[in-house]
Computed example of a mutant assay.
Amino acid sequence: MTGRYPPVLAGLIVLVLAVATLGIAVGPVSIPPGQVWAILLHRVDPGLAGVNWPPVRDTIVVDVRLPRVLLGGVVGAGLAVCGMALQALVRNPLADPALLGVSSGATVGAVLVVVCGVTALGQYSLSGAAFLGGLVALVAVYSLARSGGRMTTVRLILAGVATAQVLSAVAGFLIVTSDRPEKADAALRWMMGGLGGTGWSTLWLPAAAVALGTVALVGTARSLNLLLAGEEAASAMGLEVHRFRSALFVLCALLTGVIVAVSGSIGFVGLMMPHITRLAVGADHRRALPAAALLGAAFLIVADLAARMVITPEEIPVGIVTAVVGGPVFLWLMYRKGLT
Rank of each mutant, 00 (worst) to 15 (best):
A129H: 10
R65Q: 07
A80V: 07
H42T: 01
G109Y: 04
R68K: 13
L112W: 06
P32T: 00
L100M: 10
L15V: 10
Y124F: 15
Y5M: 06
L100Y: 13
V8F: 04
L138C: 12
A129C: 08
R4D: 07
R43T: 03
G73Q: 14
A49F: 02
A110N: 03
G78V: 05
L40A: 01
A38Q: 12
L94D: 14
T21Y: 01
S125D: 03
M84E: 01
V36Y: 11
G11I: 05
V19R: 13
H42S: 11
V102A: 15
R4Y: 03
P6E: 01
V26L: 06
L22C: 09
V61C: 01
V19K: 14
G149E: 04
R91G: 14
Q35W: 00
V111N: 04
A49I: 09
G3E: 08
T59M: 07
L132N: 07
F131K: 12
L99C: 00
V114C: 06
V75C: 02
N92E: 15
A98H: 03
A38T: 12
A140V: 13
G27R: 10
C116L: 12
S143C: 02
L17N: 13
V19A: 11
W53K: 07
W37I: 06
V8K: 08
L15H: 13
V69N: 10
I31T: 08
L100Q: 10
S143R: 14
F131L: 06
V111G: 09
G117N: 11
G133M: 02
L40P: 01
L70Q: 09
R68H: 08
I39C: 03
Q123C: 02
Q123Y: 06
L70Y: 14
V8W: 06
P7K: 06
V16L: 13
V62Y: 06
L70V: 07
P54C: 02
P33L: 02
A110L: 05
P46E: 09
A106K: 06
R91M: 11
V136C: 10
R68A: 07
V111I: 13
V62E: 02
V29A: 02
G148T: 06
P67A: 14
L79Y: 03
Y124I: 00
L100N: 15
V36F: 04
G109H: 00
A49C: 09
S104T: 00
S147M: 08
V108Q: 04
L70H: 15
Q123P: 08
A10G: 15
G78S: 10
S147R: 15
P67M: 05
I24N: 07
A10F: 03
V61M: 12
V102M: 10
I13H: 05
V19T: 04
L94R: 15
G83W: 05
A18I: 14
G128M: 10
V136I: 05
I24D: 09
C82K: 03
V62W: 14
P93N: 06
A85D: 01
A130F: 03
V69H: 08
V62A: 08
G76H: 07
P32L: 05
L86E: 09
S125V: 00
F131R: 01
P32I: 10
L112N: 09
L144A: 08
V61Y: 04
N92P: 13
L22T: 14
V19N: 10
G134F: 11
P93M: 08
L99N: 11
V26I: 14
G122V: 03
R43M: 13
T21G: 11
V74S: 15
A130W: 12
